[in-house]
Design a protein around this nucleic acid. Structure first.
Length: 680
DNA sequence: GATACTTCAATGCG
DNA sequence: CCGCATTGAAGTAT
């Protein structure tokens, strides 16, 4: 199971056809294309060969061999030539530089960036005209165009779960990398740094997006309960295509005298909405708000307001996205896709300032999986643990973790998993210490991004492995964290996995896979979840153990084979060269095997999936003059509250390893990529 | 088609 | 922890 609200036991108790039969008046295509008809998602190598039915997408600056280049870009080189010496992306232009030579650099800018800017700048530019500045960081098209977007035209129009995942993972990877570069750059304070906009702009310009065909109702590949951390993510997957606007619609002026109809709204507290109820939303119309040069005014029946009005008359569904304040990061918002609503009534009322405001009452279409409602329930449980139905233990770690982990069973009578001793760190015997000299840094005040004097940063190939808010930027063979002997202190940004749990977890009884684990808190892609602890053993000991008939179901073994997957940003998209340090192989310096049967932590409850939402990453840091390897788990993608956490248990390297393959079990992950079995 | 306008962002400062 | 100013980009409208 993946994504969605992730309720393990909730069957889709509603009749899909009923919801779908409420036909959008202008449905352009069936909303649920037969899954078999939809093209499978493929990621061909940029150079091909391409499977039948697919063609490479040529980014604007790189025309297909026999076609003429885009007319609008006379400055572009007429034909593509391989880059001679790729400029590293690190050469960000400083504002000052851009100010001086913007003309020249404009020619080298990626497609469509400098023109647009000058237009949008004219509005508020009375005296600041000269500040035509800071072309946002420039890509060298000769390099970036080398990259071929793995999205077919059909997929660009209509998505699927796999395509949506791919778009979001690519966006996030790119955004994290940009964020990392920005952190290291020491830009002048006060300068807005928007990795979200940059990443989205790069990808959308290249056509790396999906569900561009606007539609009423369900968006293929986006599930109720899915969460997003930026408005641009909604655009990229076609859930809501206004980058800031709260109402999105189709039709209207200029399009064959049709009426505009609303397709989606975002409610996030900017206006005076009533968004307390889980099924009913009172939404305010747009416009009339005070801006810099305009006072508060009456709202008009136009644009989004008109679209909502018409949608009410026609009773067509409107997607609702609820923006919720992120408790972990009060400056930010999380957007929850809450499914389809119908507008029941609308009226006009006087707002606080006395101006006329439109109001729309939206009611949730019944029978859909819960999404926002789950958030509301969790709020209560977190306030008072004992209100959680099926609660067995408020904290199964007995205080060993900084945050409690509940034990819950709302499925049957089982009172809990078999006995084990909770330990929050792995149990190493001396023989497993990795002897490495010259460890640790000497930073006094916390290791600063970009500081190459810091030994720990140097070990991470010069980069801070985590962004400022603690998100892992890229998978690597090994991440080096600062250890107890580094003087940088607990607030250092390179101490993510050693500082314990950060999200509120629950061990729960699944319907058919024993005990599992899920989170009350939303988890963003790249966030640290927990480490795997247990007794560290060697291969011989494992073999012997199994030969003696000990059917240990809690083995972690880094030496198994693991399905490779693409998670890191694509260097080509930034004009960077692929480096060795960016390898996503699970090829770590020394393999590690742990058993969590008798001693372990929450990680021992994570079930297997062939399409997991969590991955493991080796991390090392020094303790008492010795270094030990740790296995840390991070989120593959954004994980909504209550979605079960899973990782890939891996497969055995080859044929029967002394009967080890007797430990194959039938896999129930239910994903389209399911291998059919997994190995304990 | 270019350009202007609108808009329930996202940041960081004070 | 707020209010405010600043910088933004997609889509719609002209």
């Amino acid at each position: 199971m993946q994504g969605g609200s992730g309720f393990n036991a909730v069957p889709p108790a509603f009749d899909k056809s009923r919801v779908l039969d409420v036909k959008p008046l202008r449905s352009l295509k069936p909303i649920f294309p037969n899954a078999n008809e939809a093209p499978p998602f493929v990621c061909p190598s940029p150079s091909g060969p391409f499977p039948p039915g697919y063609s490479p997408f040529y980014p604007f600056s790189m025309p297909p061999p026999s076609e003429t280049p885009e007319v609008n870009q006379p400055e572009e080189p007429p034909t593509w030539t391989p880059p001679a010496a790729p400029a590293p992306i690190r050469s960000f232009r400083t504002p000052e530089m851009a100010n001086g030579d913007v003309d020249q650099s404009g020619k080298e800018a990626g497609p469509s960036n400098s023109k647009k800017r000058s237009s949008s700048r004219t509005r508020g530019s009375t005296s600041s005209q000269k500040k035509e500045k800071r072309s946002k960081f420039e890509l060298n098209p000769a390099i970036t165009s080398n990259y071929v977007v793995p999205i077919s035209q059909a997929q660009r129009d209509d998505g699927s779960r796999d395509v949506v995942d791919c778009v979001l993972i690519t966006f996030e990877g790119l955004r994290r990398r940009l964020s990392q570069l920005e952190d290291a750059k020491e830009v002048p304070s006060g300068l807005a740094r928007r990795s979200d906009l940059r990443a989205a702009n790069i990808l959308m310009t290249k056509g790396f997006r999906t569900n561009m065909r606007k539609r009423i109702g369900v968006v293929p590949g986006v599930e109720i309960g899915d969460i997003f951390f930026f408005r641009m993510e909604l655009c990229m997957v076609g859930l809501h295509s206004q980058s800031m606007g709260g109402i999105d619609w189709i039709g209207g002026k200029g399009s064959l005298d049709e009426e505009p109809l609303a397709v989606s709204i975002v409610s996030s507290g900017y206006y005076d909405d009533d968004a307390e109820d889980k099924d009913v939303l009172i939404y305010s119309g747009q416009g009339g708000a005070m801006t810099r040069d305009k006072p508060v005014g009456d709202q008009k029946l136009e644009r989004g307001n008109l679209a909502l009005e018409r949608s009410m008359r026609r009773a067509n569904e409107v997607r609702v996205i609820r923006g919720i304040r992120d408790v972990a990061n009060p400056n930010a918002k999380i957007y929850v896709y809450d499914g389809l609503y119908v507008i029941q009534e609308s009226w006009m009322e006087k707002g606080k300032s006395g101006a006329n405001t439109f109001k729309y009452k939206l009611v949730r279409v019944p029978g859909q999986l819960e999404a926002f409602a789950v958030w509301k329930s969790i709020e209560k449980w977190k306030e008072n643990v004992s209100s959680r139905p099926g609660l067995i233990l408020p904290d199964l770690t007995s205080g060993a973790e900084t945050i409690a982990v509940s034990l819950v069973n709302d499925i049957d009578d089982e009172k809990g998993p078999a006995y084990f001793t909770y330990c929050s760190t792995p149990k190493y015997s001396k023989t497993f210490a990795i002897v490495q000299s010259s460890y640790g840094c000497s930073c006094r005040k916390g290791c600063a991004a970009g500081d190459l004097n810091c030994a720990c940063i140097r070990k991470n190939s010069g980069d801070l492995p985590y962004t400022a808010n603690g998100v892992l930027v890229s998978r690597k063979p090994l991440v080096y964290e600062c250890g107890p002997s580094c003087p940088c202190g607990p607030n250092c940004k390179i101490r993510v996995s050693q500082s314990g749990l950060k999200v509120r977890l629950e061990v729960f009884k699944t319907k058919d896979r024993g005990w599992g684990i899920r989170s009350y808190d939303p988890i963003r892609a790249g966030a640290f979840i927990c480490e795997y602890t247990g007794e560290v053993i060697d291969k011989d000991r494992l073999k012997k153990k199994l030969q003696e008939g000990d059917n240990d179901e809690y083995i972690f073994d880094s030496s198994r084979s693991y399905e490779p997957f693409k998670w890191n940003y694509e260097p080509g998209l930034l004009g960077e060269e692929a480096t060795n340090g960016a390898s996503e192989d699970s090829d770590i310096p020394s393999p590690i095997i742990m058993t969590a049967k008798d001693f372990g932590n929450v990680a021992r409850f994570i079930n297997h999936s062939c399409n997991p939402n969590v991955f493991w990453q080796p991390v090392i840091y020094e303790e008492n003059n010795e270094s030990f390897l740790h296995i840390a788990f991070f989120a593959v993608r954004h994980i909504p509250p209550m979605a079960e956490l899973t990782y890939d248990y891996g497969t055995l390297p080859q044929e029967g390893d002394n009967g080890l393959n007797l430990r194959k079990k039938k896999c129930l992950c239910g994903s389209s990529k399911c291998r059919g079995y997994f190995v304990l």
